[in-house]
């Protein structure tokens, strides 16, 4: 869970600051600079809790002082595309052993999504990231025509049960589920989530940071609900609204649950 907290903190809020170069000549309170750092890469071949934990503990026991809050990049390039990875769990394990995952590289769409939910951005694959192209020096402004595909609607409607081990994501829209969402299943949307049946798994709305996203369900029995990174886990949910029809929304940083 602390990964989610981290995710929340990582939503950088820019406030007034003093003492930067830029502050001297403009309103700006910071300046972005490119730089190169050498990082440790954790190359993942497959992921399940037990074998990852075993490998980590044996790696770390051979060099106990090596990892001390060491940032690492998780490379998924050699990991099977259909290997579901719970990055929240993985992140917790890593931090137990002194490693702090900061980004993922490679990986399938589903894996990247799951990484995204855990607050881990993705880097381009190794071959591309080694050399970044220099911008053409003598053109001040490059005008390019970009074709953007605008879908008529990005909403997704699911009519069959979402089962344990399954993950469904509605990028760029709402997710509507007309059947139960099982414990062990995960549903995500950039927009709102509606479940017209019991919600027993994990539901994450506004995963790209939309604070106005909401979650609606017919019966609250969830393992976790989250809006834009602000979450509540099962034990926080088991109050008077347990098994009731509810809506969940953000008020500031507070996730508020109320009867429908």
């Amino acid at each position: 869970m602390s990964q989610l907290e981290l995710f929340r903190k990582n939503k950088i809020k820019l406030g007034p600051m003093q003492d930067t170069e830029a502050a001297l000549d403009s309103e700006a309170c910071f300046k972005l600079k490119g730089s190169r750092v050498t990082m440790t890469i954790l190359e993942l071949y497959r992921y399940d809790y037990k074998s990852f934990n075993d490998t980590l503990s044996s790696t770390v026991s051979s060099a106990p002082d090596f990892f001390q809050q060491t940032p690492v990049i998780l490379s998924l390039e050699k990991c099977p595309a259909d290997n579901f990875i719970d990055f929240i769990e993985l992140g917790e394990l890593c931090r137990e052993y002194g490693m702090i995952p900061v980004a993922v590289r490679g990986g399938s769409e589903e894996q990247l999504l799951s990484a995204n939910v855990a607050g881990l951005p993705s880097l381009p694959p190794a071959s591309i990231s080694t050399r970044s192209p220099e911008p053409a020096p003598d053109t001040a402004v490059a005008v390019r025509e970009v074709e953007i595909e605008v879908p008529i609607s990005a909403n997704k409607v699911i009519t069959t049960p979402v089962r344990s081990g399954q993950q469904i994501y509605a990028p760029g829209g709402d997710l509507v589920v007309l059947a139960p969402v099982s414990a062990g299943a995960e549903i995500l949307a950039d927009g709102n989530i509606h479940v017209y049946a019991p919600l027993r798994g994990r539901a994450l709305a506004g995963v790209k940071g939309d604070d106005s996203a909401r979650i609606f369900c017919q019966s609250l029995e969830a393992e976790l609900i989250s809006i834009s990174g602000n979450y509540k886990v099962n034990e926080d949910l088991q109050g008077s609204l347990w098994k009731q029809a509810i809506k969940a929304e953000l008020e500031g940083d507070q996730l508020i649950i109320s009867p429908l």
Binding site: T160, R163, S164, Q166, A183, G184, A185
Partner: peptide, 13 residues
């Protein structure tokens, strides 16, 4: 029951 749920997901995919 949890394992059956999982199997049902696999049957449908």
């Amino acid at each position: 029951v949890r394992d059956s749920d999982r199997i049902l997901g696999i049957l449908q995919s």
